[in-house]
Computed example of a mutant assay.
Amino acid sequence: MQDLARIGISVPGRLMGRFDEVIAQRGYSSRSEGIRDAIRDYIQYEKWMSKVRGDRIGIISILYNQDKRKLVSSLMQVRHDNSGLILTTIHKYLDKDNCMDVIIVRGEGGSIRAFTEKLMANKCVKHVKLTTILPEAEI
């Protein structure tokens, strides 16, 4: 049997409730099983991200609370610092608090990955996802 590590985390009640719904839908025997599966998925995504190299076209989707003023200015600074990668941005107000941005980028994969990771590092960002493809000429 593998050594088990125990951890304690703080999770907002609403998020935990949604996670419990997923656990029930998927038939997990416990929260621990669901968390282990989520960690494995996260590790696989990080492995994929580490292999994003060469000229790429990508879409970065980001969900955040617009009322967090420091967050918005921080996100704008990260975008400004990476403006050479950005082809266009779509900004959508989802409700009175939440916004979604879709940022279309093109550039060296490592630079796109670093840009995405800087967006992820902001504490109040709720979700960031990067998808990339090779430019058509290279497929």
Rank of each mutant, 00 (worst) to 15 (best):
K96Y: 03
K51G: 15
L87A: 12
G110H: 10
N98A: 05
C99Q: 05
V52Y: 03
D67L: 11
D81P: 02
R56H: 04
V52W: 04
H91C: 04
E108V: 09
I35T: 11
Y93V: 10
R40Q: 14
T88P: 00
S111Y: 01
S50R: 08
G54Q: 14
G109S: 10
R113A: 13
A114T: 11
V72W: 14
A114V: 08
Q44G: 06
D97Y: 07
I103S: 03
I60F: 02
I35L: 15
M76G: 01
D55C: 07
K96L: 08
G34M: 10
I43T: 12
I103T: 06
I59N: 03
K118E: 15
S111D: 07
D95S: 05
G110I: 10
S111I: 02
I57T: 09
D95A: 08
R79Q: 15
K118W: 12
K96D: 12
E117M: 06
T88V: 05
V105R: 03
L94I: 15
D101E: 15
L119K: 01
Q77I: 09
V52Q: 05
K92F: 07
I86M: 00
T116I: 05
L87M: 13
R69W: 02
T88K: 08
R113Q: 13
M76E: 04
E33V: 02
G107I: 12
V105Y: 07
K68M: 00
I103R: 00
D55P: 13
R36H: 11
R53G: 14
V105E: 03
R53D: 15
M76Q: 04
K96A: 06
R40F: 14
G107E: 06
D67F: 00
G58H: 09
L63A: 06
K92G: 00
A114K: 11
I62Y: 11
M100Y: 13
I59Q: 03
E108T: 07
A114M: 09
I35P: 12
V105K: 05
M100N: 07
K70C: 01
V102I: 13
L75F: 14
L119N: 06
S83R: 07
N82D: 02
G58D: 10
D55F: 01
Y42H: 12
T88W: 04
Y45N: 11
L71N: 07
